[in-house]
Design a protein around this nucleic acid. Structure first.
Lengths: 147, 147
DNA sequence: TTTCTTTTGCAACTATGTTGCTTTTTTATA
DNA sequence: TATAAAAAAGCAACATAGTTGCAAAAGAAA
């Protein structure tokens, strides 16, 4: 990786953390880097592994929780009961996620993607029910695996 | 409960198990009864509690897994990472779930419902992606809690 | 009833997630 | 840039969730 690029990413990360009044620490930098380096979503386990056993499990849990609280990442529910995390777009703010896109789980490569351009549809509910949030998870084959 | 009604339910349960070539056992009967007795979905923990500590944890896990495999119940992913189970409608068969309805989680009473009459919408995916299944979970306030 | 098959319960284990507390790191400020 | 206050990390211990192998028990079939 060229030095220039990593400086840029470092700056981006530092700004992101400052904007959310979070201390700039190794674990937070590393975990954010993992998210920036890749397109898909990450499960807690992925992060633990990819961080190279450098951080305590508890630190990873707490860091992810902090990121969710601050609106930096959002969670994606999946059928296999393993929460995945993905970076939020800019519209998310503390305590208020605007996560109106569809999520896609590839059954071949098992990656999870945010389809940021696919908005969740309106759901017409029966009388008496009112919706606060709509989660759509599509399972299928992704771009790469379909080739 | 009138005796007549419970005989009917017992018969229904026995038939359901036979149809799926499953032995008729206490735990299976009891767990199916829990599902039939209530409108919402059940999490593993709910079942363990409501079965009155009569069965081993392992038995409950295995029973639920068997029911999922046979297409008797289906799972509902939720944002809090706790899989919930609900009875399938008749169209489901072994190894092949036809679970095209929307699920609703009430943020007040925390119950999960199958909205059998609300079908999942078509999702237009970006080029290269193909869908096998679409899961829609709506969070909001249910009929009872909105009153 | 007896035999064969299926299911259960138990024990032990792995994985996942949480909490309290101490030490270390970061930040703000002098 | 040294230092005090605040925040975060690490550790230990615990709690919950889920899995596996195996022997005992229950169900099905004859």
């Amino acid at each position: 990786m060229p030095k220039q690029a990593s400086i840029t990413i470092d700056k981006r990360i530092a700004e992101l953390l400052k904007r959310n009044s979070l201390s700039i620490t190794d674990s937070r930098k590393k975990i954010l880097q993992l998210f920036l380096e890749q397109t898909g979503a990450l499960a807690h386990g992925d992060i633990e592994k990819r961080a190279g056993e450098k951080f305590d499990r508890v630190t990873v849990y707490r860091t992810l929780q902090t990121f969710v609280d601050k609106g930096i990442v959002h969670t994606i529910p999946t059928a296999d009961n393993s929460i995945r995390y993905a970076l939020c777009k800019d519209e998310c703010s503390e305590g208020h996620h605007h996560d109106h896109h569809v999520h896609f789980v590839c059954s071949t490569c098992n990656n999870t993607y945010c389809l940021d351009d696919v908005v969740t549809p309106e759901i017409k509910l029966p009388k008496g029910y009112s919706a606060e949030q709509v989660e759509v998870v599509v399972e299928g084959t992704c771009k790469n695996c379909n080739r």
